[in-house]
Design a protein around this nucleic acid. Sequence first.
DNA 1: AATGAATGAGCGTTCATTCAT
DNA 2: AATGAATGAACGCTCATTCAT
Lengths: 198, 198, 198, 198
Amino acid sequence: MIKKRLGREESQQLTRDKLFDTATELMIRKGFHAASVNVIAEEAGFSKGAFFSNFASKSDLLLQLTQRFKRVEIDRLSTTLTSGYSSEQLSHGLNAYIDTLKNNTRCAILDAELQLIALRDEEFSQHYYDLHEENSEALGKLITIIFNHAGKKPPLEHAALAKTFTALAEGLILQGHEDPAIEIKLVLNSLIQTAEPL
Amino acid sequence: MIKKRLGREESQQLTRDKLFDTATELMIRKGFHAASVNVIAEEAGFSKGAFFSNFASKSDLLLQLTQRFKRVEIDRLSTTLTSGYSSEQLSHGLNAYIDTLKNNTRCAILDAELQLIALRDEEFSQHYYDLHEENSEALGKLITIIFNHAGKKPPLEHAALAKTFTALAEGLILQGHEDPAIEIKLVLNSLIQTAEPL
Amino acid sequence: MIKKRLGREESQQLTRDKLFDTATELMIRKGFHAASVNVIAEEAGFSKGAFFSNFASKSDLLLQLTQRFKRVEIDRLSTTLTSGYSSEQLSHGLNAYIDTLKNNTRCAILDAELQLIALRDEEFSQHYYDLHEENSEALGKLITIIFNHAGKKPPLEHAALAKTFTALAEGLILQGHEDPAIEIKLVLNSLIQTAEPL
Amino acid sequence: MIKKRLGREESQQLTRDKLFDTATELMIRKGFHAASVNVIAEEAGFSKGAFFSNFASKSDLLLQLTQRFKRVEIDRLSTTLTSGYSSEQLSHGLNAYIDTLKNNTRCAILDAELQLIALRDEEFSQHYYDLHEENSEALGKLITIIFNHAGKKPPLEHAALAKTFTALAEGLILQGHEDPAIEIKLVLNSLIQTAEPL
DNA sequence: AATGAATGAGCGTTCATTCAT
DNA sequence: AATGAATGAACGCTCATTCAT
């Protein structure tokens, strides 16, 4: 095994990644305001200076953090959609997706935090909603496949459909609900049953 | 026209109310952290000192603000439930309730803010969830009446039922949705249709 | 027994006395700065307003408090000196005085507090030192009587003599010594032994 | 002449020293409460932030300041004791010590300030008394040497002996006495004369 | 005479950010 | 690229004091 020597760029990417992860963790645990630059840097094992070598400002971190957070979800959904799975497999996949991703307290809290910031900060708003829309579109397509698989036409367009389920999942978690899977499935099945046939 | 002379108590109650209102407004517009004592007091037309003559601390304000906010909703629901309305009237009342109260961006944002604080602050958590549970119980009873009016048995117990619809309303608003009424009614009707008969 | 009805003046004197006592107590326990007007008033059972009805300001209280504190000691010493006691009785009286008064942690702390303020505040300084000088003069006369009783001439004039013993008593208490009586008597006896005969 | 370039550490040490000196000066001139962080920093030529880059809190400064203040005295005494001076030289040294150090108004005031804080703050108390005891022990040894040099046994153990003279010096200065040397020497000589022979 | 709501200066402290090293 | 001392604005909060009641 060859000891890998990191180049400057790789090394910095490592620093940046560690800062991202720590910042995400702290934003979830304490919120954006309480997650101070100093604490983020130190908990990541660096100094304040390293933070500002990697991010122009704290709000720059927020932008990039959001980008990364949403991109991960979008990529996961896109992969599922473009892979050659049958609609049945996708349907099962969605159930898993609902069970795992949306049943993820940490993601829900972070998303709520970001949404509150978006509602108050116009500049951030644009950034967030673009990504959120893309995410919702992808998730909506996936949910639509389930409806279709049951021979039904979903009652809402892609994004609206996805947002409904996201609202359900995240809204329940915010209320302290540990696992919103039951409610989500209840609503999903009910909507499928009452939906118009294809 | 009689010149109203305010007593000391009345006068202070006025100050307190103004501070409450301003604080609520600012918590919605800027969030708990950004709504600093200084800004709250000044925007209410008082000095910082006046704030601390009326509230023991900023977190005391948060507690009382939450109490007041939730109590208003609980009282509104209780009044509706205990008044002699027929279940049909109640059913229409709920629809109105959904249209108005839950379609209230400001309330949704404030509630989300409080929920995020509750998730991170153990002491506040107890306070919030007690009130939230009471609120959910009352709302759940109201929603149950609609199901019964349609000859159906709701698929969840009171609190869980209410939380599902609250999640839907607040979750959608957090995503930037201006009016979640369509989705709420869609899900409500769907759940009623697919519910077991009484 | 006739129920005493207090006139306005008597009633106010009562309030003032209670404020004095409480202020003294708090100045000892917490120091002048930490003994806030609010706490003094409340602990005395009154409102802030009552404080300012009786004292022009907090530093006015300090002045009057000092006056009262020093006056009590001066009066006690004067009474002892002018009463018809024999020098032997006075000598025993001083020993008792040393044992009780100067062995009084509370008085020592309060005096040290006042001395520090006097060293820093010119206006207060004048007030304090006048009283202190009077006190020292009286105490010095008493100590001189002991020396004379032993057939000796004290090695310092009245005030300087008294200040030496006050320094000893208060300085030891400030260092945490609970009972400086041993050291005081040691020094007193030693000085008497080595003093010139009358 | 070589242009001195200060490293980061040296530079910070300079800042810290300036803050220490200014803080000491202000604590003497105005007392602990009145010597606010803001004033200390500004008078030292820095911003408030610089203070908190160098001290964790104001009470941390107090701890370190006390440490430094007492340590200087202890070191001076220790050096005198461990150097090869004859007891006669030491005896003269003590006289000088009494003349200079204890005849130091500033030190006396600072020590009194610290003692009052120690009497009221349990946490600080431990810190102060440990250092004070060490200091008293060293001073006591020195004073004992004088007694021995005169062929006498001191009437008190080391610490108690030292505290007696410290009380005398500081207590007199607190009373406004500018130079307590006369009283100190009077008491010292008197105690030596009346002490038991070795 | 006594109350206590309101004031506004000041407190100790935190924070994002800068910059010399 | 990374460090961390220094900055200065802002924070939550306390205080002596005022004044309408």
